[in-house]
Write a protein that binds this DNA or RNA. Sequence first.
DNA 1: ATAATTATTCTACATTTGTAGAGTTAATTC
DNA 2: GAATTAACTCTACAAATGTAGAATAATTAT
Lengths: 123, 123
Amino acid sequence: MSLSTAEEQLMQLLWKREKAFMKDLIEEYPDPKPATTTIATLLKRMQDKKFVDYKQYGRSREYYPLVKKTDYFSKHVNGLIKNFFNDSAGQFASFFTRETDLSQKELKELREIIDSQLKTKQS
Amino acid sequence: MSLSTAEEQLMQLLWKREKAFMKDLIEEYPDPKPATTTIATLLKRMQDKKFVDYKQYGRSREYYPLVKKTDYFSKHVNGLIKNFFNDSAGQFASFFTRETDLSQKELKELREIIDSQLKTKQS
DNA sequence: ATAATTATTCTACATTTGTAGAGTTAATTC
DNA sequence: GAATTAACTCTACAAATGTAGAATAATTAT
């Protein structure tokens, strides 16, 4: 089960703050802010889907993610790779570096990373 | 407007064949194949969304994509980058090379690409 | 011609998603 | 301690999605 668009957006906010009360999450939204009940519903559904949980503090709940952003993200990318690149990460990577507008600095950084990875794999 | 999951799946098939009659598309599905009416509905919706069009041949239609796979794909990745990496492609790239299991060969290829891109940007 | 087949449209309906009002319970203020 | 506020839950409802039957139109086989 995965998150819907609205849920994912909310999840982003939660990832950003690590943990938060509903109140705080709503504040993060730009105007016009959604109704509290809207967010309550989303949070409930996200609980059902096992993406968040909470700690009760008095009458309010502090929500926190059950899924790491990077994990969630990886799944996404892997889905994309599977669909669009025949399950070849390499194919994806080359497409990506070609199509995306990386600055010279970014490209160099990336090469650094690759070099260090190559070294690691060497041994 | 973007494609729903089922529509996207169908779109993949259409991209694969460049163009196809409904019949052919249905054949590509693994069993249990969807009802023809299901596919017809999806194709209709995809037309409305301007993702496909068709040429009439006698009583049947040969469908073809209006959107290139790479363009569609780019939009996806850019969405991901925006959401997960604060709109920094570089951040995404480094995450990607770190997290994905690229083989040594793939890494080398990738470095080649980066080098050639660096050269291009130099001038 | 008539029956069977094919391709498409129209209609339908359950599920999921986006959004929020109304009601309930507990805490806070006057 | 009565009124107000805060935090949730329950219910609702419209729009989007997934799926397909029934109806229609055209085509081919008998």
